[in-house]
């Protein structure tokens, strides 16, 4: 598998703040078609890291390469064409006056001819199931719908990488589920690589690999199963416990001997009924 994002030893300090760097020698890479989640407590530098990937922030030192191109002043716009970003606040990233105008915004920036734009906007809206809302204004959409429009705006640009910068953190559970489902579908159809920054365990569980950050450094890396088996330590990492883990913790308190490994919900159900029937 080929690497599509390669971040080497990146350091960055916001100049107005005290001397604490937001990123301290961070290195990681993402393979093509992979879904990587970055988790960590507030202020651990996750969002800063996401912004360095498409050049919204220029690192003080270190190297960033996307799709084989090194990030520098000359390449930054070509890299931004490869990287689509969905931000946290659905309202503040909605540029267009209506849904279709917003989806078209990125295409307009690239100077795509109008006939092709009409086609691309249509298919992108279809992919996120928002076609019937094409004429709507943002004020009349729910948060989840706005984020789906933001995803459509990225899909229309046909990027290689989609970055979700806490894209589901301001949504209700239903909107969150909607957006995650859309991301999964789009990822499969378009063969995208996804980098998601999140506090949401469902989102982290959907990833192929989880990176844990703290104080501007990468402290853990592994599959969701390995990371989730840390149990109580997850809370310190800024994540909720997944439901099976919470159940295990409660059972342990009752004096029941629970398995150490991480179990999914189905795994937990399996273990429970074997445990009960053995008794």
């Amino acid at each position: 598998m080929s690497e599509i994002i390669n971040v080497k030893n990146v350091t960055y300090t916001y100049d107005d703040e005290d001397q604490r760097p937001a990123l301290k020698g961070v290195s990681f890479s993402i393979n093509k078609g992979e879904w990587v989640a970055i988790i960590g407590p507030n202020g651990s530098g996750k969002s800063t890291l996401a912004k360095t990937v498409n050049g919204l922030i220029e690192p003080d030192s270190g190297e960033v390469a996307v799709g084989g191109l090194e990030l520098n002043e000359k390449n930054v716009w070509s890299i931004r064409e490869m990287v689509g970003m969905v931000f946290q606040n659905p309202d503040n990233q909605f540029v267009g006056s209506t849904v279709q105008d917003d989806v078209a915004f990125g295409l307009e920036n690239l100077g795509i001819p109008r006939e092709e734009m009409l086609e691309r906007v249509r298919t992108a809206l279809e992919k996120v199931n928002m076609l019937e809302f094409a004429e709507r204004e943002p004020a009349r959409l729910s948060g989840g719908q706005k984020q789906r429009v933001a995803i459509a705006g990225i899909v229309a640009l046909r990027p290689d990488i989609m970055i979700l910068d806490e894209a589901t953190s301001m949504l209700d559970p239903q909107g969150r589920e909607e957006v995650l489902r859309t991301v999964k579908e789009v990822k499969e159809q378009e063969n995208l690589s996804v980098l998601s920054i999140t506090h949401d365990i469902d989102e982290a569980a959907a990833a192929n690999r989880v990176l844990v950050m703290r104080d501007g450094q990468m402290i853990q890396e592994g599959t969701p199963e390995t990371i989730f088996s840390y149990g109580e330590k997850l809370v310190e990492m800024g994540l909720d416990l997944p439901f099976p883990e919470r159940l295990k913790a409660s059972l342990k308190k009752e004096g029941i001997d629970v398995p150490k490994d991480y179990l999914t919900e189905e795994g937990m159900v399996d273990w429970l009924w074997t445990y009960v029937s053995k008794k």
């Binding site: 919204l56 931004r80 990287v83 931000f87 503040n92 915004f105 990125g106 920036n109 690239l110």
Partner: peptide, 9 residues
């Protein structure tokens, strides 16, 4: 930021 990320020049 969002506009810039979407290639607005």
């Amino acid at each position: 930021t969002a506009m810039e990320a979407r290639g607005y020049k």
